[in-house]
Design a protein around this nucleic acid. Sequence first.
DNA 1: GAGAATTACGCGCGGCGTAACCATC
DNA 2: GATGGTTACGCCGCGCGTAATTCTC
Lengths: 285, 285
Amino acid sequence: MNLHSLRYFYEATKYSSLTEASHYLHISQPALTKHIKNLEEEYGVRLVEKNGRLLSLTDLGEELIKECDFLFQQSEKIEQLLKQKSSHIPLKVGVTQLNSEEFIKHILVNDKFKDIQIELTTDNTQKISQLLINHFIDVALLPDTPTLVDFKREKIFSDKLIFVAHPDYCKSNISLKELDSYSFIKREDGSFIQDTLDNWQTDGLYFSNQVATHNEALLLAQYKNGIYLCSSMQAQTMIKSNKLKKVTIESFPVFSRDFYLYFNKNKQVKYFKRYVKEIIDEIKH
Amino acid sequence: MNLHSLRYFYEATKYSSLTEASHYLHISQPALTKHIKNLEEEYGVRLVEKNGRLLSLTDLGEELIKECDFLFQQSEKIEQLLKQKSSHIPLKVGVTQLNSEEFIKHILVNDKFKDIQIELTTDNTQKISQLLINHFIDVALLPDTPTLVDFKREKIFSDKLIFVAHPDYCKSNISLKELDSYSFIKREDGSFIQDTLDNWQTDGLYFSNQVATHNEALLLAQYKNGIYLCSSMQAQTMIKSNKLKKVTIESFPVFSRDFYLYFNKNKQVKYFKRYVKEIIDEIKH
DNA sequence: GAGAATTACGCGCGGCGTAACCATC
DNA sequence: GATGGTTACGCCGCGCGTAATTCTC
């Protein structure tokens, strides 16, 4: 029997619709439908029936799910056994400065990664891509990179520059006229963030403080020290926990970069990819 | 985890070597190796180790197999549940006269087919192939057939014309000089078998009796009535049970036809194919 | 018309077989 | 040299996503 289709069927029933399930299972909705049809056709049985515009389980479907509980519980047990005895060499991951902190915070410490041992390398895009090419690392999280043009990759998220501030510090939408009512947090000269700000408005911005790192800037922003421009990825968790809010400023252009996972062939990479995507989903929420 | 590879690994351990297992599991031996490697690489574990020129299970491998017992026992239970509730429309199978008796005897009454309901049509090759083309039947067992040239097919066995006789009736190898010491069983004039015999030796053959059907001829041969020319497929079981033996006659040319399963797309056909192949293997032994 | 499922279709990867090679007896 | 396992390689089908369609509220 096709245990692959059975697994998807089983997992899908944990959600209220196929569409919802497809989202959480990281598979397209038509593909899920197909898996269910597979089972039904293979055995000439009906497992689901139409219920309004949703599907619901037939009696046989319910019965099947109960049996699947045992099956996949056992399969889980086996997987744990194997993972426990695993002597994997660590998966070598390369990231840029921009990602590294978020990576460490949200990905590497995540429970999902308890069974993948990871060795992290942080360097600039150029160096990381060279490591990947020379097989010194297995995976790299990087923006679009010319030297990796024919490498396997998968888009993970789109990073944009956004303004953030303490929720009480200012309105959420600020017009150009209102700009002088607020102060901005200044990053070190020559940094990408500061250059972007300077190029946008050479005058008219009032800077409260200058800091040396992204972390310092975030801290100041939290203490209502001003509005701070940073990558949406880096601010996401603070926004989610309401320590900061996103601030839109009139006519500020969109600076965005897509980030990809580039990878060499490696059995573990598959899981790594899935976990990363799941975690990114959680962050985006 | 990859339950497909796990299944093959599990089943393979029931045999003494991969080569032997591959034969019974109807998969090539390199493919089996690959499945095991899959599991080992996915989890970074060792499941088998070299033991002379054979493989044997590691401790972890043994442990894994124990857990797999539960897993695939449960999977079997689920499969039974589904098959029991199955409301399959019968699988429509077409065969020629030549095959039909062997089919009914050795295939359709076989235990393996208890969960596939079969509707059998017997007719000549031309008619059967038309039924297949028009989707009136799902599977057909036929020799190479020009009208089905771009149909999906799979070679099932090669049928040859052979001489058979009672084990005590004659020697196993007969030279041309000795031919006149034995009598032959004569089929009805115009039959393929009789025509073949007549075209080979227009004189010099002594015919004891003339019969109307293959079954009658087999019966006579069993009663030491003479040597009988028939298809190897049709005589196989009598030979296996020592009621008849194969007789080689000097300079008799090989008349052989390959038989194929031709099939339309149908979920059940997969199982049908596998069962047929297994049974053919049993017959060939 | 919005949300859900189904059908149609095309692409890429993985599973498989064949063949050649290596290792053990 | 015979038997069993491994590596290399290429093909085909299955699993999947995208897009268009149907169905329900």
